[in-house]
Nucleic acid binder design. Structure first.
Lengths: 353, 353
DNA sequence: ATTAGCACTCAACGAGATAGAGTGCTAACA
DNA sequence: TGTTAGCACTCTATCTCGTTGAGTGCTAAT
């Protein structure tokens, strides 16, 4: 059995149609409504072939056909057309222009909200792996007599803070001086470079004046570890999936929403960098149905893109929806948003350096 | 028609039973399974009375009866028994003991998660109204040559930060000195006390040395305004509601989940301090079905409690679920958690002052 | 005052019957 | 040889209709 142009054209039409209607497509429908100049009988034969080749499936004998994962895969890789963002799409993006100078977290959160609103699927987004980020500044802010705040800012605009208890009788000026020492020792280092040995080194340097604050050092090591390990996951628009007939069963829908609530599981889905998902173009990865590792995702597709600060990958953003997804449109939208995000982050955190 | 003890007992039994089964309760069932020493016929008469009085409803002629909002109201106000937390409940609360010294936000978030897990309803929680909070410390942390971080800590442990651009050529030492001035001027003031006049006063004090930093002052005013206005809303376990037959219709479930995503709407529900919802006991408010203002809530009930730092109300926590709710159990659990939260916050932010 | 008994109501369920969409196959056709 | 018309066949979805059973309200007996 060979794959000719005509088969491709028919498959393309069927998938386009099924994406819209969610109803199995019959030969008659293809012959009438989609302008391929062939009779339903001929189409019927071709569809039988396409099924044998694994691109289509039949829910039952007397129903039309629906695309298989393999069908979608072909569609994504070589059939579908590029989608041009429309005016309404662009106006929906208008809000992004209002992004303010602020914490990277907020920008990122906003991006995921926009993505979910624009696509009508569930948007997911991971924050940076920080291992290779560098410390821009460290500050120990005294809050009252017994506690202070450790504040850590990295060159990617990420900020972390933690409250620590101070040994009794520590005075404010003292804390400020220690803060200066910390800053001097740690500024410019990448998080990876701050090892246990580095910490001991600081401990030695403290010997002279700051014995009192030894316990604090452990807290600081903690915060750094936290930042290093942590990659947060935001989801947005999870309830969107309830709009699709694929999730009309409440039990399944509940399972799926609970899965989306489980940050770790979602992070897993985003970070599986296997070769199955084609790196289509512009760094977009599409993983269709069975190509996903987790059982609960076998009937869904994931589209992800990386985002950057300068040329370092910071995290991923993407959407999750039913395999019957408008791939072309959605890919265009993700590309657009990740491009906007990249530009913005570049302006904020690279330009000014 | 008068309300005698027997009627109350029957109503009580019916509601208890309906809370468990979600099925309309018939006279026969009451006579057999719940030990009221009466025949089904007698119960039937009593139930007809209770319906006429508005405490029960009939979905259709040949079905059993279900409680009305009025029925639940009577139940909550004077029928139901106190619920003793069981051992499994307590172990579920065990996790709370691990609460760490940290930001108040995290504690509060954790509390809402525990609440939703413990009750199996959707938990909601609002953070403090900050108007009357006092500033514990202000710090301006230089991040690099062109930007700094404003950090604001209040006596309730809330921390806010914002990144600001520095005028070209500002040096670090300069920023630190300005930071000290700010701290001196603002520490101890409540947010309400920091008016425009106060800001101008600082501006005058700066005159001598800090003209360069005038623009920063506006940012600081911004941050303070933010903190003052802001009351955050956390929700947790929203998907729990999908377990209940009341929400088995996907369309309705979607609407409801979207409502729970709308922080403003949820805040509205929590903050309506009207007289309808009885202040039952221990500061618990129960609002049943129609007693809620919003249409989408007319088939749900809300149970809320205030929580405090010391003796100042900080915010509310509560749950939202179907009117067929296990009021007794849920109230006990909310009481318990708000008590734990109060104690913890007291220890953290009052004790040490 | 309570209860047994009975006629009545109505949703839920299951069994056909029917309609309709779609298929595969065969034979005719260009 | 590729395409198409026609037809028998399959199978789901939908509707009708009778049955079942839970539950009620009313009446008359206790």
């Amino acid at each position: 059995m060979d794959m000719n142009e005509r088969k491709k054209k028919i498959l393309h039409s069927i998938i386009n149609e099924y994406i819209k209607s969610a109803e199995p497509i019959g030969s008659r429908h293809v012959a009438r409504n989609l302008d391929i100049g062939l009779s339903s009988a001929t189409i019927r034969n071709e569809m039988a072939d396409l099924e044998e080749m694994g691109y289509l499936e039949q829910p039952h004998t007397s129903a039309g056909r629906i695309p298989s994962d393999k069908g979608y895969r072909l569609y994504v890789d070589s059939l579908m057309n590029d989608y041009e963002l429309t005016v309404p799409d662009m106006t929906a993006l208008g809000g992004t222009l209002e992004w303010q100078l602020g914490q990277i977290d907020k920008i990122i959160k906003k991006a995921s909200v926009i993505l979910s609103e624009l696509t009508n699927y569930a948007a997911v987004l991971t924050t940076p792996e920080m291992k290779r980020g560098a410390i821009k500044t460290v500050e120990l802010v005294p809050v009252d007599n017994s506690s202070a705040l450790i504040i850590l800012v990295t060159n990617e605009g990420v900020m972390k803070h933690k409250r620590v208890l101070l040994p009794a009788g520590t005075d404010t000026e003292f804390v400020h001086r220690f803060s200066a020492l910390l800053r001097e020792k740690l500024s410019g280092l990448t998080l990876d470079e701050i090892s246990a040995t580095k910490i001991s080194e600081i401990r030695r340097a403290m010997q002279a004046h700051f014995e009192l604050l030894f316990p604090i050092l452990d807290f600081i090591a903690d915060v750094i570890d936290d930042v290093r390990a942590e990659t947060e996951v935001f989801t947005s628009g999870a309830t969107n999936i309830l709009s699709y007939p694929e999730f009309s069963d409440v039990k399944q829908a509940k399972e799926f929403l609970e899965f989306l609530d489980d940050k770790n599981a979602v992070a897993g889905i985003l970070n599986t960098d296997d070769e199955t998902g084609t790196q289509n173009n512009g760094g977009i990865t599409v993983r269709i149905g069975q190509e996903n590792a987790l059982d609960i995702m076998k009937k869904s597709s994931v589209i992800t893109a990386n985002y950057y600060v300068g040329n370092r990958v910071m995290g991923k953003l993407g959407i999750i929806g039913p395999t019957r997804m408008d791939y072309s449109k959605t890919i265009a939208k993700i590309k657009k948003i990740s491009a906007m995000l990249n530009r913005l982050l570049y302006e904020l955190y690279v330009d000014e350096e």
